[in-house]
Design a protein around this nucleic acid. Sequence first.
DNA 1: CGCGAAATTGAAAACGATTTTCAGAAAAAT
DNA 2: ATTTTTCTGAAAATCGTTTTCAATTTCGCG
Lengths: 144, 144
Amino acid sequence: MDQVQLFNDYLRCKGLKTTSQRLIILETFLDSDCHFSTEELYLKLRTEYPKIGYATVHRTLKLFAECGIAAERNFGDGQARYEPIHGEEHHDHLVCTECGLILEFEEPQIEKLQESVAAAHNFTIDNHRLELYGLCASCAATAN
Amino acid sequence: MDQVQLFNDYLRCKGLKTTSQRLIILETFLDSDCHFSTEELYLKLRTEYPKIGYATVHRTLKLFAECGIAAERNFGDGQARYEPIHGEEHHDHLVCTECGLILEFEEPQIEKLQESVAAAHNFTIDNHRLELYGLCASCAATAN
DNA sequence: CGCGAAATTGAAAACGATTTTCAGAAAAAT
DNA sequence: ATTTTTCTGAAAATCGTTTTCAATTTCGCG
Ligand SMILES: [Zn+2]
Ligand SMILES: [Zn+2]
Ligand SMILES: [Zn+2]
Ligand SMILES: [Zn+2]
């Protein structure tokens, strides 16, 4: 299903309202498919829509996460990030600690091993986070 | 090597001073081997040593992390946690989102797969975090 | 020992990201 | 159109963390 449709349905079923701000934020968020902090998205929006406030961006991103349009991430730089979920598979992240580059990966074998670890401890897993921090190829080259 | 010795050596080589507060905090930290937030350790210390301030606990935990006596963790509850490293192997965590129980595990196969993922993307890994969130056995039983 | 330079301490203030408040504006229901 | 409800944006509040600063403590040196 279309993301905008999905969002509108969510708003309706929760008794919330469709507003121009929410649609603008959604569009901008989906358009540039990356790992936005609230601040970053706010700044990007501000160039074209200076009237939209920070608080609205924040509240709207939370809404996206709530209705499954976005995933909240935290890469340890002290600010939450949100990325669009286009119905794709789950993925984990490689993060360059030098330049901030974020790569995504999927490793089914790791996912499977996580399950068996959880089972061995009688845990029921709801979700997990796996992040590999280090240097990307170009930062490693520059660093010598 | 003894942890206290290691700490004293670190202080000396950095031109820092050995103080009663630092030794008390270290002892308390090592004694109860768990994943302390600054607040938790501060409160625990306060019962026996009401004079020790929060800032000192905070600064001392940072020191521990610096010299390799402690590892800083973050389990997504909005506050940093520190756990003693007794020279053991690296481990990852299972976190119960209901009761806060934290279990530790090691899975060499996962570690190995992480390496190969990084290699495939030309990343050099410095460190990583893997946390599995869900319900522990007893919380799962209670929840029905 | 005691002195003095240098580091440490604790209370309070500053900080930065996030969240809430509130009065006016906008959207949906009637 | 009127009423009700939600939303918005600016500003304030919050929360964990970090810094400031004057008073205290440590420690090398005479
Ligand atoms: Zn995964
Ligand atoms: Zn991603
Ligand atoms: Zn690991
Ligand atoms: Zn641990």
